[in-house]
Design a protein around this nucleic acid. Structure first.
Lengths: 205, 205
DNA sequence: GTCTATATAGGGATAGAC
DNA sequence: GTCTATCCCTATATAGAC
């Protein structure tokens, strides 16, 4: 049952971290919730950092897959829309990382570096997608405008969850976040691309 | 010297919180830094929460002044630019609040409510300024576009500091943040307003 | 107001039996 | 693999002398 217990620890820790924030959940609390002993938990994960890192491994693996999906053809609006939904669903599942991001990055240096990698990939993906749209004349933005848009996409993608929590305090809303990022791009769209997005927006509202 | 010590505690705590994050700075650490005893510190602030709240009082007071500055005339681009600089300088001075915002709001409920008030005022100010621009035909945005812009302004204004810390790890850059928020508005500007902003952008770069 | 000393509590982590 | 028991350490906060 070793593998099983290890897995159950990961699941329970993830649920508690997401619900109450990693800084507010002790290893003892996780053990309690599982009705196992603290010693047992520390047998599977010697330190709390090990536990967090294992969760981050899973998250990182999924995000890298999403962000480095091979592009067989130039991307379109629907591709962006889909990517955002998948990415934001995943972020929602590991929201404890985003809830206390700066604190986690400060306390666990390895995690900070790896998160930077995800952020870099995010911005590369955003740039690639936008450049496809520009090449297809569905988008019109100067190089400096594009830089600003990409930085804003990265920022909103990283902190929509924390913002929702502080501002609204209702549940996780990946769909709203996707729309929020889309609204960063929409003013630069031209022709039928803009019409298409407007249709999507009306459908959403 | 009572008033003096109290003030020195506030200043030292602010500096340490800003540098290392509130969760990572103990009350003993603050006392050490000041070369006073922990007991003395707790004489002036019975709990750590009291200390944080006193710092938040100062911050809130300054932000409310900035955000509720009386408008004698319709706002222009330069007014927005100026407001952003002043607000972001202040945020930089109290950056510990923004570094661990969700955690602080989770642990101190009163602080959460008061921060929501600041956020609400921020969005009202953003809306008011944008509506002035629209009325002056310097900006063109549909109601739903305006809603999205305002939400994004609030989000970027709240988390630019955390984003910088995670992404760049260099110092606090209120000027860059102001430009980043401006770039949310710029695609909706028309005519000479857009030209003017482009000039500011080039001057900045 | 300030100090020294201490209480209280809790978190992370280990040892060793089973 | 799992448990019980416990250690070590740190954090917040208080008591009482000066």
């Amino acid at each position: 049952m070793a593998r099983n217990t290890r897995q159950r620890i990961l699941e329970t820790a993830l649920a508690l971290f997401n619900a109450e924030g990693e800084p507010n959940v002790t290893t003892n609390r996780v053990a309690d919730e599982l009705e196992i002993s603290p010693g047992n938990l520390h047998y599977h994960f010697r330190t709390k950092a090990d536990l967090i890192e294992a969760l981050f491994d899973d998250f990182e693996h999924r995000m890298l897959q999403i962000l480095s999906a091979p592009e067989e053809r130039p991307a379109d609006i629907e591709d962006i829309w889909f990517l955002l939904h998948v990415a934001f669903e995943t972020i929602g599942e590991y929201r404890f990382i985003y809830r206390d991001l700066t604190d986690l990055c400060g306390r666990y240096r390895g995690l900070h570096q790896r998160f930077r990698g995800i952020l870099r990939l995010t911005m590369e993906a955003a740039r690639s997608l936008c450049e496809d749209l520009i090449a297809a004349e569905r988008m019109d933005a100067s190089p400096s405008e594009l830089d600003a848009v990409i930085r804003n996409i990265a920022l909103v993608s990283t902190f929509w969850l924390a913002f929702d929590q502080v501002h609204d305090a209702d549940g996780v809303r990946p769909d709203r976040a996707a729309w929020q990022v889309m609204s960063l791009i929409s003013p630069y769209l031209v022709g039928e691309a803009r019409t298409l997005l407007q249709a999507l927006a009306d459908a959403y509202a």
